[in-house]
Write a protein that binds this DNA or RNA. Sequence first.
DNA 1: GATGAATGAGGGTTCATTCAT
DNA 2: CATGAATGAACCCTCATTCAT
Lengths: 214, 214, 214, 214
Amino acid sequence: MNDRSDSGVAIPNLRSRIREATAAAILEAAEQVFADHGLHGAHMNDIGARAGVAVGTLYNHFKDRDALLAGLLDQRAGEVLGEMDRVIAEEARADFRERLTTLLRTMFTYFAAHRPFFTIFQQAESADLRALYPVAGKKVPELGLEVYGRLEKLMKSGVRGKALRPEGAELYTALIMSMLRVNKIRERCSSAGAGGPAITPEQLVRVFLDGAGA
Amino acid sequence: MNDRSDSGVAIPNLRSRIREATAAAILEAAEQVFADHGLHGAHMNDIGARAGVAVGTLYNHFKDRDALLAGLLDQRAGEVLGEMDRVIAEEARADFRERLTTLLRTMFTYFAAHRPFFTIFQQAESADLRALYPVAGKKVPELGLEVYGRLEKLMKSGVRGKALRPEGAELYTALIMSMLRVNKIRERCSSAGAGGPAITPEQLVRVFLDGAGA
Amino acid sequence: MNDRSDSGVAIPNLRSRIREATAAAILEAAEQVFADHGLHGAHMNDIGARAGVAVGTLYNHFKDRDALLAGLLDQRAGEVLGEMDRVIAEEARADFRERLTTLLRTMFTYFAAHRPFFTIFQQAESADLRALYPVAGKKVPELGLEVYGRLEKLMKSGVRGKALRPEGAELYTALIMSMLRVNKIRERCSSAGAGGPAITPEQLVRVFLDGAGA
Amino acid sequence: MNDRSDSGVAIPNLRSRIREATAAAILEAAEQVFADHGLHGAHMNDIGARAGVAVGTLYNHFKDRDALLAGLLDQRAGEVLGEMDRVIAEEARADFRERLTTLLRTMFTYFAAHRPFFTIFQQAESADLRALYPVAGKKVPELGLEVYGRLEKLMKSGVRGKALRPEGAELYTALIMSMLRVNKIRERCSSAGAGGPAITPEQLVRVFLDGAGA
DNA sequence: GATGAATGAGGGTTCATTCAT
DNA sequence: CATGAATGAACCCTCATTCAT
């Protein structure tokens, strides 16, 4: 009985572990290839080659190309949202400035580590591409929404706690979200930016809370 | 004799006027279709259909798909930069806050009127797509650079004129540029934003200069 | 009356002379372009450009592309056949060896002066291309047939006059015709041939009549 | 264990055998279609249809249309040159007349069996088409050169062995090569030729060595 | 479950031909 | 008649997807 139940349980476990390892390898390959060649330029053959499997194998794990992309976006979105939630919980007691700074640092750090994903995500978020990916459509926009929701909650608590002036409250969240791209812009456009130090969450929060005016 | 020479001159004029009108119609159609379907999803047949011409006509005006896209980006970039320069010259004497507000309003207004173009431009600016479009590559990144240059000049004058604190001076430009997307984010993410009033340049400048802190 | 009839006659004459000049220019341009780019690679636009007229004008003179090609082949075939007939008549009294040599020299000379045409003609003569050019089909094969006929007549008189052995009589004509390409082959293949002197009709006739054997 | 490793080896073998069979079918289809419709008139869809495969399959075996044509010419050129070399080696001891006759018979036989290829080859050899097919260009002219080289070697040995008069030695090779087309010309032009017996290598050699003169 | 050759719809592009000026 | 932009059928090629092994 032991033998049988062991083997009966163990084999599926082994198999499912192999399955998951393959799926993870595929997702990682997909992240690279999508980032390298763009949302439309990434080819299933390339993804398979980079993952070290044949094309057919991709279809054993994901229904089609869109499902693979959606799976990738899901996976990464889950990771970053998880980290955000963890930090929000940890810093629940801190003052507003520190909570905002820490949350921004979390996002900056994640995106710095997963720059390919960030690039993909921005393209996928484009309103006009959503139409092209009905399968992914359900999930793709959610990361933006989810991040927005978390930031908005923080902003509201900031207004309640008198850390933020209430007049412009409804624009704060969108404003902070738009600033997440600041380092990308700095790198691309600023002559100093290419090699220089990235803008820090502290600097960002400083301007956001205190203003840039003299 | 006059009559004949007149007609001899008139025909080329008429033809070239028609040519230009067709080219403009093609560009406008391309703007719509590229925005609707994305940089890769836009098909030459669709562009032709929307412009009311046959596919072949597109190729009488633009060497290939990339040249059409590049032509479109060039055209629109020229327009928005021209308006920016005009406003910058007009407001040369105004104080910093007004100059910044007016410049932002100019951009907001242009992008509101050419939302499709803005969408295309953001996609084209993506680092990963530039590699895919070598033809467009030469011009595409320039709009960002040009806008950045003009904003930076304004920021420097703001610092010199004591309107801006000098400590974070090197991040102001990138920060303002990143904020240009704020209304797009608000529309997409905010529950209020979809139908609500857009964020105004005044609001943006208020937060930027005075801060959101209480 | 004089005036009227003069102008009535003169204008058509002038016009028809212009027409013919244009048609000749088109044919000459076509000869160059067909030879430069091949039977299928020659484009109507290129032919028009080289002739110094617009595409539409080509269609005022020739029904379509095939008719233009057929017209070109007709024209040149008429010229070379005319020269052959003239030489045949002139040399009617000479002995066989001289008549053959002179006829070959006529062809060699014409083809040396119209090498593009010769190239075109060979392509057009290909059995498999005839199917593609039903319009030209009637005329294209005729040059080969006409030349063959004239040579065959000469061969028969040679046999009758005991200048040729009668045993292989039925192969002589085809053999001589196949030899017309000898200089083209020599140029292309022989290391000496590229710049060296062309093979002369005399040499050819020498081998044909006397053999290469020791 | 043996069984398993056997099957592990067998699968690739089976696949590669199928691959080669498909490639051969494609080449054969291409030979027909190129010959039937000409170098430019042959369409990839037609080739696929005749080979019994989809268009895409053609591109799994050949990079593009030019590579397919080049592959075809390579393949056939290799075959005919191989046969020529075999015959040359076998007949090394025979006298000149027999060696020449046998070599010609080899070529006549091969070309009779691969008439489509012969047609293609002549078109491809055309100076003006070589420019259009840079991919094929490298190999295309080689068949002519290779055949020329082999014939020239034979001719030189004929001169050395006193079988050929030395005076016209430098034209013999080109002359023999030009004669290879004799049967094609006979079929097309001679009223007797269409159905009649082909000219034999013996007849050809007879005229070449002994002359047609009485 | 993994493999990778075959598939074929669909996209970008060309170019002979037309016709309003 | 000359012009040359517009036309659109037809071509080459790509690549997501399938399925026999």
